[in-house]
Write a protein that binds this DNA or RNA. Structure first.
Lengths: 195, 195
DNA sequence: GGGGTTATATAGCAAGCGCTACAGATAAGG
DNA sequence: CCTTATCTGTAGCGCTTGCTATATAACCCC
């Protein structure tokens, strides 16, 4: 055990609470007061454990990203491009409307608008979304090489399309769209694969 | 001419400047200082002319909405559902990447995240996006009645799909997507109509 | 020119922001 | 026990926010 007075809260649990607040309010919308209240601690404990607001956000983002990445990986592991797209969009619909956590997508919420001080956060989120899109693109390239995607298909364009639909679905979810409505959007988008 | 000292600035021009700031920074990201600087006036002039920050935003939003509505109306006036969707998405791609104004869509930017005080703004923007979607839906219903949309088509689902793609495109545009990339997304989305 | 009315510029308010100094509390090592 | 090290709670710092009190300037009507 480390020397000194031990911390009186569970850092992982506190991080989950912080993620919930950021998820609902965005990076700038979440105040230190909101966060400490949700985490059940006082400001000095927060700063001692996580550095500052940006550090806390980055650690919470890592937790969020694990959720999102597992979703993505599961989809990319499907055997065909069509199955990948299906799993991606319908899994996303389920995720966005899951009652266990706030509606919408943290990276989309936080990435759009900000005062100047949050520019680096916006950059970070943009980077992560680009990474996701690149993962889909590479998977579709492979599908084309393997022949389960037609020879005249355009993997980068398809990947961007899927990423765009997912981002749009996040906006819809944040505006109150239901699971059923999101699934219908997903099904409609998938028709672009059948054409 | 009204009695009293005349105002020394053009309210319409000032409103355009304010719109530009809100468009780039969002409702909360735009400070009174940003706004007054861009508008070339001092705070008391702003408050005398527009009430408060929220009032200024609503008036700027009305200007923005005129741009967006004219785009929508032009698309909805096309003779067939397919042509409507084409015009909608490609017009939107052009709009989002127009170098004459900031990238992205004001209603999407402002609508996602906020501190509590901006809740009513978020509600207003949600309402406007819902209105747009409803306009598309009604046009597609008409197309179905008129027979240029197949009998098994689902106008509400198609309208939601189009709105979702448009919102996703706004996110992409805000993240730096080019006109060409957005047009390719639009083209891919349109394949859902051909299926 | 004087009175009334409205805009302007300066300057600063109260409130909320992210963050921290400080003192007290709780542990380990001696 | 005392010392050292770390965490906790209170209280408040400096700064920015949206907004405004006040005094002055510019216009119309008489």
């Amino acid at each position: 055990m480390a020397i000194g007075r031990p911390r009186a809260f569970d850092a992982d649990r506190a991080l989950d609470r912080a993620l919930d607040v950021f998820w609902r309010k965005g990076y700038e919308g979440a105040t230190i007061c909101d966060l400490t209240e949700a985490m059940g601690i006082n400001p000095p404990s927060l700063y001692a454990a996580f550095g500052n607001k940006e550090g806390l956000f980055r650690k919470a983002l890592d937790r969020y990203w694990r959720l999102r990445t597992s979703l993505l990986d599961e989809a990319l592991a499907q055997p065909t491009a069509r199955r990948v797209a299906e799993r991606l969009l319908h899994g996303w619909a389920k995720f966005l409307s899951d009652p266990c956590h706030p509606k919408g997508c943290l990276t989309v919420h936080g990435a759009l608008v900000s005062g100047e001080e949050a520019d680096c956060i916006r950059g970070e989120l943009e980077k992560r979304r680009a990474t996701s899109q690149a993962g889909i693109r590479e998977r579709l390239k492979r599908a084309k090489r393997e022949g389960d995607l037609s020879a005249d298909a355009d993997p980068p364009a398809l990947a961007r399309f899927l990423a765009t639909v997912m981002e749009g679905m996040a906006v819809q979810a944040a505006s109150g769209a239901s699971r059923k409505e999101l699934d219908r959007v997903a099904a409609t988008a998938l028709r672009a694969f059948d054409a």
